[in-house]
């Protein structure tokens, strides 16, 4: 990972005004740092520029950064026109992880959001399908344990 500021790559021009920073993840993925409230706006702007069939939502990765008191949420989007992976990266507080759901704009985010809620406790506001025990066993969900948190004791 490089933390040096980079020039804004072409693929991110449509969301230039929302960017808080740009980095690169190996191999050659452009990472756009955003405020949590701007992720949906950024996706909408990318979709408006590249078209509904010009990109697709690929993967949602939520990571517990316990030492920093944050949970990092990465949205991986494959921009087919540019043949380029874009990562929308944002951070939410670990003690109250909430972010607007991307579901209305990208139905493909459904399993990723449900999984991140079930395993890490990230609440995607506006997603009506969130429920515990989507993946984890019910006895774990009943104890209010989020297994992928570093202090889950699993």
């Amino acid at each position: 990972m490089s933390s040096d500021p980079l020039e804004i790559p072409d693929v991110l021009k449509p969301i230039e005004n929302l960017l808080k920073g740009v980095t690169v993840m190996k191999p050659g993925r452009v990472v756009a740092l955003l405020e949590p409230g701007d992720v949906v706006k950024a996706y909408v702007a990318l979709k408006a520029r590249y078209g509904e069939t010009g990109l697709y939502f690929s993967t949602l990765v939520a990571t517990d950064l316990k030492d920093e008191g944050k949970i990092r949420i990465d949205y991986y989007i494959n921009v087919l026109e540019k043949n380029q992976y874009v990562v929308l990266r944002t951070y939410v507080p670990r003690d109250d992880p909430r972010i607007e759901s991307l579901l209305k704009e990208a139905p493909a985010a459904l399993p990723g959001e449900c999984e991140a809620y079930d395993l890490l406790g990230v609440v995607f506001e506006g997603n009506p399908h969130l429920r515990r025990a989507f993946f984890v066993p019910e006895e774990v969900a009943e104890k209010d344990i989020f297994p992928l948190r570093k202090d889950a004791g699993v």
Binding site: E52, T53, G54, L55, Y56, F57, S58, A106, P107, A108, A109
Partner: peptide
């Protein structure tokens, strides 16, 4: 095609 890309 739109269903394919929107639903990943």
């Amino acid at each position: 095609p739109a269903q394919v890309t929107s639903h990943g």
